[in-house]
């Protein structure tokens, strides 16, 4: 099981859940699992960045996730 943390601005999409555990081995399977729990969240997650074990991804679609990983969703950073 991997630990998944949502920022406050996504909590309206997770029924107020900040932290959860998900059984998955890739970012794609994680998103599928989350979409099952909270339909509609996939579209929201597509607009966020995510950190997997400290590495920040603007787009993590192809990433694998190790069982010990921590996953943090976060604001997408743009910059000037």
């Amino acid at each position: 099981m991997i630990k998944v943390v949502f920022p406050d601005h996504l909590m309206p999409n997770t029924e107020g859940v900040r932290e959860t555990e998900v059984d998955c081995d890739s970012y794609r399977s994680l998103v599928r699992e989350l979409e099952k729990r909270w339909p509609g969240i996939e579209d929201v997650l597509a607009k966020t960045a995510v950190a997997i074990n400290g590495q920040i991804y603007q787009d993590a679609w192809l990433e694998t996730i190790e069982p010990s990983s921590e996953v943090f969703f976060m604001h997408r950073i743009e910059g000037g």
Binding site: G54, F72, M74
Partner: peptide, 13 residues
């Protein structure tokens, strides 16, 4: 430092 959990979530490389 490396491994510190950043305030915004992830651990710094």
């Amino acid at each position: 430092d490396e491994g510190t959990q950043a305030p915004y979530g992830p651990k710094f490389p």
